[in-house]
Design a binder for these strands. Structure first.
Lengths: 211, 211
DNA sequence: ATAAATACTGTTTATTATATCAGTGTTCAT
DNA sequence: ATGAACACTGATATAATAAACAGTATTTAT
């Protein structure tokens, strides 16, 4: 969210405190008087700018038509999904709980269960619409159905792969034509470990400081 | 506290829910219209009685000068993002608040502000990694920076487009090579309307009943 | 039964607020 | 140094809103 200038902040705060106290917003004239402006247009133009930056919403032609857009508090202890680290770039270990952050998303949205999140590095799943930088939501489980996408641990590296299990081998397939498949005979099956099942992604277009 | 009559309760509740939704109280005329009264005085006398019983406080002569005394739990609602409908398949109107659901995600994750969600229909933004069925998170704003992706209303249809504004025209570009661009000279600029800025997506791989 | 409180209609007027048009400096990044 | 965003003044039109006055039914509690 674009930052307010000092003056804009003061006006925003005045509106917020007025709203708190009276339960309705001030009029433009009331704001003008508080700041000692000689013209209401000073207020009008400020409000327009504050609205453009997304902090308030104006209702055209309505008296006191100022709606404060609430800034959500980041400290709520709502249900959330732990972000464990990056995939294809290290070993995410939930036992250590050394997560960088929690995503403020209810696990219910992704079907519940023991969910965690991993930031996707690289283009290996691009054809499944999973891009570099996306946050993959994973449900912790040791086995997945044939053909499903899973987070798997190969050689101490976590990656997203589509998993195919036949009677005599295990195939890990990237969703990217330029990547080759991995195939493991059953005897080497223990070289890989399934961390969990891919349940979806969250993509934040501009970094919000969460990652 | 003396009890309100049925009618008074209904009016009080209407004011409370209006206040909840808009963050400012209704005018007497707005109350009149909602209840279908032929006269504003019906409202006036009701308000006077409700005030006498101590449920509201009126500010004489002030527009929307109604203060709720029994504060409705404004803080009971968990932060979430309203899902307004589908994009490229109808007109999402937040004024009507006819959302199908709320996504249990904190708006903070997508930078806060007045966020809403739209389900993406079609392949028009496939090259930006936005796929059919994804849920786009949009922040309500009237203008976006050049080259940003926005939800725009074209001919009463909402779509996601990358917006380019030059001195003499407005170009809407799909992120899909098989789609052609829309170009509007400045004179026709008002044919389109920007609903908000694209902030990211959420993709639930298996339907969770949220959509 | 009857007064008091409630639930309204109808009309007019005064006041409150917002919108619009036309400007002037000032700051700030390129 | 030059435009763009910011921070204002000033005047006027118009819409939005509340207040006031004068009533009529209906319900509710004595």
């Amino acid at each position: 969210m674009k930052k307010l200038t000092d003056k804009q902040s003061k006006i925003y705060e005045f509106i917020a405190s007025w709203q708190m106290k009276k339960s309705y917003p001030p009029t433009q004239a009331e704001i003008r008087d508080h700041f000692g402006f000689g013209s209401q247009n000073a207020v009008r133009s400020h409000l327009a700018l504050i609205e453009r930056k997304g902090y308030i919403r104006l209702s055209l032609g309505k008296a006191r038509g100022i709606k404060l857009i609430q800034i959500p508090n980041l400290f709520s202890k709502e249900p959330s999904i732990p972000l464990l680290g990056s995939i294809a770039a290290g070993v995410p270990l939930w036992e250590e709980q050394n997560f960088e952050d929690h995503l403020p998303i209810s696990p219910a949205l992704f079907g519940g269960g023991e969910l965690f999140a991993l930031k996707v590095i690289g283009e290996s799943m691009i054809d499944a619409g999973i891009r570099n930088g996306d946050v993959a939501i994973i449900r912790r489980q040791d086995v997945v159905d044939n053909g499903e996408i899973a987070a798997v641990l190969i050689d101490h590296e976590a990656t997203l792969k589509r998993v195919f299990l036949s009677s005599d081998s295990l195939i890990l397939k990237s969703e990217n034509a330029t990547f080759k498949n991995f195939e493991y005979p059953m005897s080497e099956k223990n070289l890989i470990r399934i961390l969990g099942r891919y349940m979806g992604i969250v993509r934040m277009e501009k970094n919000r400081g969460f990652l």
